[in-house]
Amino acid sequence: MSVDSARGNHVVGQAATRQTPTAAASAAAPLLKSLKYGLLGTLMPLAFVAIWWAAVAAGFFPRSVLPSPFAVGAAMFDWAFGDPARGGYSGTLLAAIGASGQRVIMGYGIAMILGVAIGVPTGASKLLGALVDPFIHLLRPIPVTAWVPLSLVFFGFGFKGAVFLVALGSFFPIVVNTIEGVRGANRSLIKVGRMLGARGFRLLWFFILPASLPSIFVGLRLGMGISWVLIIVAEMMSVKSGIGYTLLDAYSFGRFDVVIAAMITLGLMGFLSDRIILAIEAVVLRWHRETSIHAEP
């Protein structure tokens, strides 16, 4: 009650002193709003860390298995900035991120190029669809982890095998969403393309591909998520570097602070790469956002 009236007074006072809103004020309003929503997003992670800390402090779990958030923070700091000369995990974070990131980018890049290049013609042509579609849907249910033995045989331990697994895993969501995107593309846009004289590749490139981009981006996001899952699988099974390797190695030494630090790093990497895709999507698919149901009136 008193809070409400105080706020009411404040608004009245503001309106009285500032009769014409300045450009700065109108620009600050959406910034404040997004700041508010940004802060809202940090609420649950903070609460989670607090509960975690309390649970450890209360002695619910042995510290050797679940270290406190501060211990994990310290391990993370040492992993990131420690002197490599000290051995162990000190100062090797960047190298681990680099190793995993490189494999993800390679594998994901291959999946993206192949997924779109195969998906667009497969979706556009009935004949190709009948030829390729059943094969893709037969391969897709095989868990990518089941490919590990064959991958080891063909690509051995190391970079190539990891790239293969990442590429294979992220290929399926990308290709399937590309095919569906093309099939769902507005028919009249394809009619327009043919009327304007586009045939074959140019019809695909200038008309069908842009029309199916909204669906392709769904596949790209799903594929990126799977990439980070598979790089860890690959690094745990067959590669001797990277975040996944560090995680498994730390586990074998009972260093749960490093295990959790590696988990957090993975979470952040996945989050970050998703945000990058979203940022690209925001530019490329502006037309789609503004014509979809999410558009602000």
Partner: peptide, 18 residues
Amino acid sequence: GPGPDKAMVFQDYALLPW
């Protein structure tokens, strides 16, 4: 077949939104 010598104006405009 369709081509630019016989241009159609569609009822739903059919512009490329991108």
